[in-house]
Design a protein around this nucleic acid. Structure first.
Length: 819
RNA sequence: GCGAAAGUGGCGGAAUUGGCAGACGCGCCAGCCUUAGGAGCUGGUGGCCUAGCGGCCGUGGGGGUUCGAGUCCCCCCUUUCGCACCA
């Protein structure tokens, strides 16, 4: 009889059809008893279609979901489309199509491709953020935050991308360039909507202590939040008794060494305090500094070129009571601290450079403790001395002389606090989240500007504010969004006074759409609430979230913030959205990054067509550790094809034997394999799980033997998360009538059987391997030693010498030491 | 510059608390089967020396701890990522 060959195409289309008909992955959203919410970052539906990076990410997450299902949980695995935003809009502009036509067709294409991969999505609960049913609630969230004082409109220097012609959040500026188009970002003063994420900085930081997330992702968030402890110190300004110049410093211990002050060019005191004779120079400098874009300014900083001018104003150092000059320089940033610093050139590299350039005084106030006794105040520093531990002490610091620098931070700040000249303070690097976009393709911000009433929120019952069809949606330089071109949209009656009013024309950042999409999935058909409370209680927070680390400080930070805010406003019973987050790695091709410009992008469709979705999925997971990524190589996929051919051959061809695994050894191997695969899959170590299954199959088929049912049935179940179609087919052929994904079909192992009865023990002489001996598990040192000494190779190396010492590691190794 | 992670065969990658380095797969080599094979099966495959038995070397480099180090400690090199004039 001709052996039947594994035909992926036939098997996969058969089961996809059946799953779809049976509604296998449609979840009982109100009644599930063991709910497990398995979330993956939803894709942006590009016109190019599903990228191998998407497939890689989704496959790893789908395997996790199917594994949980096989353990007996009811897994809710939804998918949606992040289809608003500049990316979609720019693409539509390029193609000269309208996003309202382009996006639905992209989504159809993505849906087709996703279905072909065999992911267990509940297709009855798809989120498309561009649908009014969805963005109605995005707007609702905006109103809630506005009501709570967490949203505000203010004029601020913002990042402007001259190519995208819109402002960008800080998180969207990478090395001074737009993350979308890499254009150098410039600064503009514009009225913008901000979410006050900085109010939550400490909580966002504190909760990182207990949430179960990838360490690297937490670290990125910590760095981004950038907490630093120090003090706020007020300096009096000579001739301006009404003003105090406030600075933030992490080094209050060096206050006695503050020999000048520096203001950022944007500092609000600058105009008033500049002396008449310095005004010309200062104005000129400020003008030049403000004309520079972010990138230029940074470049100058990197090269250590520091520029600045004296304002002619003088401040009083609060502890030395000396008059010190106030300079303006662009190395001081308005957006950090108070936009002004006390400069301590002896102990800060930047201040040191500046002082050297402009010949400003440098005073040493911290030195190593062991040089305290013979300290020479006239020492010339070659560079700033920045150490300040318990091993350094203060000098030139009045009554604080001799105090260890680490202690002096607190002592000096306490003293200032008592005198009302300063206070302990904490500063964060994170900025408020600018959510305004002067673009078309997003949810309109639901606010109306009335000539009489001012800013009026759109009443909740009037939501959604529909995004109008605007023929020409191309952005321009004006800083006003394209929605202003639709007079029908723009002109509106004031909801308060009924008078003439205009709508806000900014749309919100696409990261607001994705900040809450996972809350919407369980409630997609509910149009009366954003998320049903009972369903939210049942399914959220998300049990497992898998996604790319590139969103660590964007999506992941924003969605934590929105969740916290909604919690505080009484809309959610939890304040962290994701129980567990794991980043997946990135996939490269033959050692190089994949990119369109390199022309080395792997198109999933081609491989799926020739090898099947199961093989492609499994191959991707076999490339390397899921959390680290892998290197895609054409040829390797054949390894998985062969593996599945052999699995098929072992299960579907010939007659399976009955009874338990044929030998004890094989039985041990089976249990050990189940143990390993169970643990590895749970830990997302898919590559080693696959290797273990291959190894096991090799053992089952050793010498071309025919497998027994008891040997292969567990293997089929373990393959199910990776190769769901194949497993389902083989499961049916094994005589099961229901789907393998209904019920807890993951195999159990007996821990006692998962270890072999007999072990191989390494025998070393003086630390070098000379032989191995087999012994029963748990054999005593004496027994192993006897066996070891019986080995000819061991005797030869002992060379008749006396054994001085024996190292014995049970079941592992024995090491005989001779003189 | 600061912070983090990583460096293992020709390649992707495995290695419990320090305990037989190179699992699994690709590729390669040999043999079998086949009219044929870019198919399948069996075996081999870190390097060097050796006719063989066997021996020596080997996890980026250098030191150290230890009976024993890919794993721990110190110094250095390289790569990747994040942050970057953050006071």
């Amino acid at each position: 009889m001709m052996a039947e060959r594994y035909d992926p195409e036939a098997v996969e289309s058969k089961w996809q059809k059946r799953w779809d008909e049976d509604g296998l992955h449609r979840v009982d959203i109100d009644g599930a008893e063991r709910p497990y919410y398995n979330l993956m970052m939803y894709p942006y539906p590009s016109a190019e279609g599903l990228h191998v990076g998407n497939v890689y990410a989704f496959t790893g997450a789908d395997i996790h979901g199917r594994f949980q299902q096989l353990l007996g949980n009811t897994v809710f695995e939804p998918i949606g489309f992040d289809a608003f935003g500049i990316h979609s809009e720019n693409f539509a502009l390029e193609r000269r199509t309208h996003p309202m036509e382009l996006i639905p067709s992209n989504i159809r294409n993505f849906t087709r491709q996703l279905k072909r991969m065999g992911f267990m999505y509940d297709w009855s609960r798809v989120v498309d953020v561009t649908r009014p049913e969805y963005y109605k609630w995005t707007q609702w969230i905006f109103l809630k935050l506005l009501e709570a004082g967490l949203a505000e409109r203010r004029k601020a220097p913002v990042n402007w991308c001259p190519s995208c012609k819109t402002v960008l959040a800080n998180e969207q500026v990478i090395d001074g360039r737009c993350e979308r188009c890499s254009t150098e970002v410039t600064q503009r003063q514009l009225d913008q909507w901000f979410f006050k994420i900085t109010d939550y900085a400490q909580r966002l930081l504190d909760n990182l202590e207990w949430i179960d997330w990838s360490d690297s992702t937490k670290r990125l968030q910590r760095n981004w939040i950038g907490r630093s402890e120090g003090a706020d110190i007020d300096f009096e300004i000579v001739g301006h008794p009404d003003k105090k110049l406030r600075v933030f410093t992490t080094r209050p211990d060096t206050l006695f060494g503050a020999t000048f002050m520096v203001l950022a060019p944007e500092h609000r005191f600058l105009q008033e305090i500049t002396s008449a004779e310095r005004r010309g120079a200062v104005d000129e400098y400020v003008k030049a500094a403000l004309a520079m874009d972010v990138v230029e300014r940074r470049k100058a900083g990197e090269e250590g070129r520091k520029t600045g001018v004296d304002t002619g104003a003088r401040a009083i150092n609060p502890v030395t009571e000396e008059e010190i000059p106030i300079w303006v320089a662009d190395y001081v940033l308005m957006e950090y601290g108070h936009g002004a610093i006390m400069a301590v050139p002896a102990h800060d590299e930047r201040d040191f450079e500046f002082a050297k350039t402009y010949d400003l005084p440098i005073r040493i106030v911290v030195i190593p403790a062991d040089r305290y006794e013979d300290f020479d105040p006239n020492t010339e520093l070659e560079s700033a001395f920045t150490e300040h531990t318990e091993d350094e002490v203060l000098v030139n610091s009045g009554r604080f002389d001799g105090v260890p620098a680490a202690k002096a931070i607190k002592q000096i700040t306490d003293a200032l606090e008592q005198e009302g000249r300063g206070a302990h303070a904490v500063n964060y690097r994170i900025h408020d989240w600018c959510i305004s976009r002067q673009r078309y393709w997003g949810p309109p911000i639901p606010v109306i500007h009335c000539e009489d009433c001012g800013m009026v929120p759109v009443p909740e019952e009037d939501l959604p504010v529909l995004l109008p069809y605007v023929e020409n949606f191309r952005p321009d330089e004006s800083g006003v969004g394209p929605l202003a071109r639709s007079s029908e949209f723009l002109n509106v009656d004031c909801p308060q006074c009924g008078g003439r009013a205009k709508r806000e024309t900014d749309v919100s950042d696409t990261f607001l759409d994705s900040a809450w999409y996972f809350m919407r999935y369980p409630s997609t058909e509910r149009h009366d609430v954003p998320f049903d409370p009972a369903r939210t209680e049942r399914w959220l927070p998300v049990d497992m979230y898998i996604g790319g680390e590139e969103h660590a400080v964007l999506h992941l930070m924003y969605s934590r913030f929105i969740t916290m805010a909604l919690h505080d406003l009484g809309h959610l019973p939890f304040e962290e959205p994701y129980h567990k987050f794991r980043k997946h790695g990135l996939i490269i091709r033959e050692g190089a990054k994949m990119s369109k410009s390199r022309g080395n992008v792997v198109i999933p469709d081609e491989y799926v067509a020739t090898s099947g979705a199961d093989t492609f999925r499994t191959y991707l997971m076999f490339l390397g550790p899921y959390e680290e990524g892998g290197d895609f190589r054409e040829q390797g996929i054949a390894g998985i094809s062969r593996f599945f051919d052999r699995v098929w051959d072992a299960v579907a061809n010939g007659t399976l034997g009955d009874g338990p695994p044929e030998t004890d050894e094989l039985n041990h191997k089976l249990h050990a394999t189940i143990k390993k695969v169970t643990e590895d899959v749970a830990a997302l170590q898919y590559n080693t799980a696959i290797a273990a299954m291959m190894e096991y199959l090799n053992a089952v088929r050793a010498g071309g033997r025919q497998a027994r049912r008891s040997e292969v049935e567990p293997l089929v179940a373990m393959l199910a998360p990776f190769a769901p179609h194949l497993a389902e087919e083989l499961w049916a052929r094994l005589g099961h009538t229901g789907s393998i994904f209904i019920g807890a079909n993951w195999p159990q192992y007996d821990p006692a059987l998962a270890v072999a009865d007999e072990v191989e023990i390494a025998v070393q002489v003086n630390g070098r391997l000379r032989a191995t001996v087999r012994a029963p598990r748990g054999a005593s040192e004496d027994a192993v030693k006897r066996k070891a000494l019986a080995e000819e190779a061991v005797q030869r190396h002992l060379d008749g010498k006396e054994i001085k010492k024996t190292i014995f590691v049970p079941d592992r190794l024995i090491n005989l030491l001779v003189g």
